[in-house]
Design a protein around this nucleic acid. Structure first.
Lengths: 245, 245
DNA sequence: AATTACGTTTGATATAGGTCAAAATCCGTG
DNA sequence: CACGGATTTTGACCTATATCAAACGTAATT
């Protein structure tokens, strides 16, 4: 059996799954590591456009993204859709389904991706035995709640420019945390999907990006984007309007 | 020792706490019931305007609302505030703090209220021993995630009328679930707080309510409100605009 | 009962972002 | 490489909601 976890300065990284969010503070016995390894062993590949799960389908497992990029969306009866999040490597997806045992949203791959399936029953069982894992699971769920509240703040009180700036900086941070460039990356989603996430129309997203470009804040060409001035971008967030006077 | 739980057709209700959300499917031993009872024994009273906890303070416990009404809000650096929820009897509050051990929002009593304190360490410990409790805790957290996603949909894609209609119907449902009238109740929050929650200015809230009143959908006088036509109100939600033709 | 502070309503006007439309660009496929 | 569909950009115009301001109610306080 290969070693399930490798030591890093402050954390243990799961080698089989590359689960940033699932990385755990140390001290497990070999026995426990073995169990954790077993839990995360089922991997699966998805092509761009594939559904990881659909709203309404039965909940069995959480999914940990190994590589790739997903979006989650809820569909309103009348056809309106709301993108509720973009998920990347190391993030856990499917938490919303625990409440009813039915998935409450769709999860769609935005590029070819790999995920680890985490059967939830076994995860619960294991987390009864391993307080560290239990605590970790709770933190992951809580973090999702905090994230959602941040989006409420964004949707409820920010102007288009602020929303977009916050969005770009958030992506930047998450790429950086994974060892990619914080200042240049490829957007995996369309303007329409960005708009849905941010509560804006795609035209507004496009216009605002163009405006950022003129202002030398960013450099966009289609899906490639470079953040040229993070400081000013950061300054934009939390500005009721562009410099009161 | 008084009996901790009383049987209802499908659930067990916690007598000490009146914890709708904490009600659990049956089969606990007396021993287990005793432990649950002990967990939920610390009660506390709050006056209108009191803070249950503040953003930035250390996380120790979740709180189950026994009676009364709270709001939770996050404050942005620049002074903007976003109300992230209104909580009533039987609901659990404080889940956001688990992620960092620091409260991420304020919780403020909107009327005189009573809460049960649930020390989180002991809750985790107990839920390791009682799978039913564990599952329940997970469902509560997941339900919060689903709720938040619903609000994202509301904030991201609904017009003012829809938002308000959805808001009123949501309150109505929750009052009804607690045995109060579904069609007449007192709003515990100001127009400003409603607006913050719904991503609208207080004037827009006021105007929209006035418009609903003219349309004989509701009857408002200050904080007392009666829903006169729930069907039409429901029809409003999910309408891109008022009857296309 | 008078005073004050706070919350609400309503009106007039401004504006951010939506809508509709056309052109430009990108990308996958035969 | 050329085609066709999807995505993006840009323009012109419109509207829902914000903003500013004033009057009005309501509820707590003395």
């Amino acid at each position: 059996m290969q070693k399930a976890f490798t030591i890093t300065p402050t954390q243990i990284a799961c080698s089989s799954c590359n689960l940033r969010e699932f990385c755990l503070p140390a001290d497990f016995t070999d026995e426990e590591l073995h169990k954790l390894e077993a839990l995360t062993s089922t991997k699966r590949a998805y092509r761009r456009g594939d559904y990881l799960y659909r709203s309404g389908s039965k909940f069995e497992s959480l999914y940990a993204i190994r590589t790739g990029f997903f979006k989650t969306q809820v569909l309103h009866e009348d056809g309106r859709e709301q993108v509720t999040g973009f998920q990347m490597a190391g993030e856990i997806i499917g938490l919303d389904a625990i409440s009813t045992d039915i998935h409450a949203c769709d999860a769609v791959a935005l590029e070819d991706s790999e995920v680890c399936e985490l059967p939830f029953n076994r995860l619960e069982e294991l987390s009864r035995q391993l307080p560290t894992l239990q605590r970790h699971l709770h933190k992951i769920m809580s973090r999702e709640i905090v994230r959602d509240q941040g989006i409420m703040l964004l949707l409820g009180s920010m102007r288009a420019e602020e929303r977009l700036a916050a969005f770009l900086l958030n992506l930047s941070q998450r790429f950086a945390a994974r060892g990619y460039s914080a200042s240049a990356f490829r957007l995996r989603m369309t303007r329409q999907e960005i708009g849905s996430y941010l509560g804006l129309k795609l035209e507004t997203v496009s216009r605002t990006l163009s405006y950022f470009q003129e202002s030398r804040l960013i450099d966009v060409h289609n899906k490639s984007i470079a953040l040229l001035d993070m400081t000013r971008l950061l300054g934009l967030v939390g500005q009721q309007r562009a410099t009161p006077f």
